[in-house]
Design a protein around this nucleic acid. Structure first.
Lengths: 198, 198, 198, 198
DNA sequence: GATGAATGAGAGTTCATTCAT
DNA sequence: TATGAATGAACTCTCATTCAT
């Protein structure tokens, strides 16, 4: 028997948790929550079915953890864009390129499901919607900077942020792996919609 | 011989079919395909479970019929926009207002699911994607007219059509009944992205 | 409207009843009772499903009528063999040839099912078994005649009748349409088992 | 790693499989295939419904396994008769007594159903019929030995084997538990049909 | 902790029977 | 009387969850 090592135990536990969530993200995004079997998640994660339940109480619990993690990661990402050096337009360009590169289709589908499905508890739906609105703020801040520098179109920054994020999401949902309807230049083209003509 | 009236029978059959599809559209959009019980569809349609199977061979069959009908209705709608009298900008305005008014969220969710879910047969996925692209053409034609009249931004009309439709869809998915994140002016605001500044 | 004719009405009713029973016999023998849908019977009989219920109260009712008719027809047949002119051996030959010619596989299967299946009410099972035993008597009488004339093997005539009928049935069940394992001479060969060597 | 014992697991698996087949044999023989619920099989076997599906893909799959096992067991049985020491008549006597003692009614009913029902896939029907014919060979060999020793009636051994087996089956189907029409001496009497008078 | 066999509630689908026309 | 659409109970099969090892 190996000697107990609480720190290492916790670390292993977190690694397993992440591993299960990563697998769950992909399969749930591809098949929907009720279309995904716990056995699918377990298999993709390379663990046994029973073991999944050592880390999560239920399939719903996995979904909720997934949603929270996804929204937090997005928050970190958009704040990183806001905090970076460079002009507001540079920030927007970086955000857009990163979004495309990271292929956020999986979490986009999941969050859309979380906001719209009746199968999701109202409590969670409201939390997700509220967090989504809150997550628009860094983007709105970038847009506001762009308006002050005269580089971006006028209008309520929060509204413009919602429009831009919706557009990113809408485009993303047409660029799922294996169903590519997007040519590479389209996101670039979309970006320019926010910019003033000169 | 027969105590039935064949013409009336057929009429009733078509009415029932529509009734079931209408119900299915709403509940499947709200709960997902695998999250929806045939019993839910039946109850919403006000018919018995068994009777649903007189009209559709399976739940998947209902879904497929729904998708076909949805894409055809969209085609009719966008061609109506193209055919109407008035300037290209008028057509785009009408299209946008109608889209918002018709609250196309249900079919938007369904078609997104049809294009992206692994649970959907590849054959159907491809058909839906192809039809989606084809359905961009009338919108591209409107944009081309707008470019010729100097009212709309330059760029490949098909690309711009994809962007605009993606934006509509993205916004729609944030304006589901009971989860309204959209203020009334946002769609109007979005529309202006395609217009040239003067 | 045609004028009422009670005699003709009854005749038509009997014809319909026979027609339904004939269809039922074939399909139930081929698919089993619970494997047969009332719709199958109706379709084979060329009537509507609803109309079947004008003549029989239930599927079980059809089955019971079938069994009764089958056992009565067999009784008539074996009594005809007993009553015919000629030697006991001639009677047995005629009986055997007729049995083979009439291809009684359908009713044989049905009666076997009626006697052995738990799905059949005990009351009916007992009636069928009793009638089966009773129906052995004419055959036993033929055998007794054959023993008296010295042409048939000795032994209890009822036992020998049971053996011979079981053999006929056993052979019949290997000569179902589309599954012929029987060569034409086998029944003839079987017949000789009852005859004395000379 | 694994806390399981693979050898023991496999053993348990085989035991469960047999247990389910044994239960299935009895209930399907008594109620017919479509008259038998998987729940009946599960209950008789003392396992849960869901667990049955861990061992067999479908009810049809159980039926097929049952048929294969039954025909193989019969083959072993009849070959044992052929291989035993003693005269051909001794072999036939042993075979007959064993058949009666083993009360093969269940598998007899099942195989008859497999050969005759339209509900059984043609592929399986043909396989069963072919195996049935093949399984006649050891019996035919016994009869041939009996003919050579002058103890059995002349004739094509395969034909006589078919007749004898059909007779056994026919008698068996009149001696189902709870429907006994057979007196104990009848099988003995039947056996003598193949023997020459002296 | 790790495993996967076992459970049983629940979903899709069928079909005997009824009934409005 | 004849029809076949409508009903819903019952069946097959699935899968989230538990638990003995």
């Amino acid at each position: 028997m190996s000697p107990r090592n609480p720190a290492r135990d916790r670390q292993l536990r977190e690694a397993r948790t992440s591993q299960i969530l990563d697998s769950a993200l992909t399969v749930i995004a591809r098949r929907g929550l009720s279309g995904t079997k716990v056995a699918d998640i377990a298999e993709t994660a390379g663990v046994s079915v029973g073991n999944v339940y050592k880390y999560f109480a239920s399939k719903e619990d996995i979904f909720e953890a997934l949603v929270h993690r996804g929204q937090q990661e997005y928050r970190d990402f958009v704040e990183e864009a806001l905090a970076m050096s460079g002009s507001p337009v540079d920030k927007l360009v970086w955000y857009t390129e990163q979004w495309i590169a990271k292929r956020e289709w999986a979490i986009t589908i999941l969050l859309q499901y979380a906001r719209t499905s009746e199968a999701v508890p109202a409590r969670l739906k409201q939390a997700v919607s509220a967090k989504f609105i809150d997550n628009l703020r860094p983007m709105a801040a970038i847009i506001e900077q762009g308006q002050q520098s005269g580089d971006m179109v006028p209008g309520d920054p929060m509204e413009l942020a919602l429009i831009y994020v919706s557009l990113m999401e809408g485009l993303t949902l047409h660029d799922i792996p294996d169903t590519p309807e997007l040519t590479s230049g389209i996101a670039d083209r979309a970006l320019r919609l926010l910019l003033r003509e000169h």
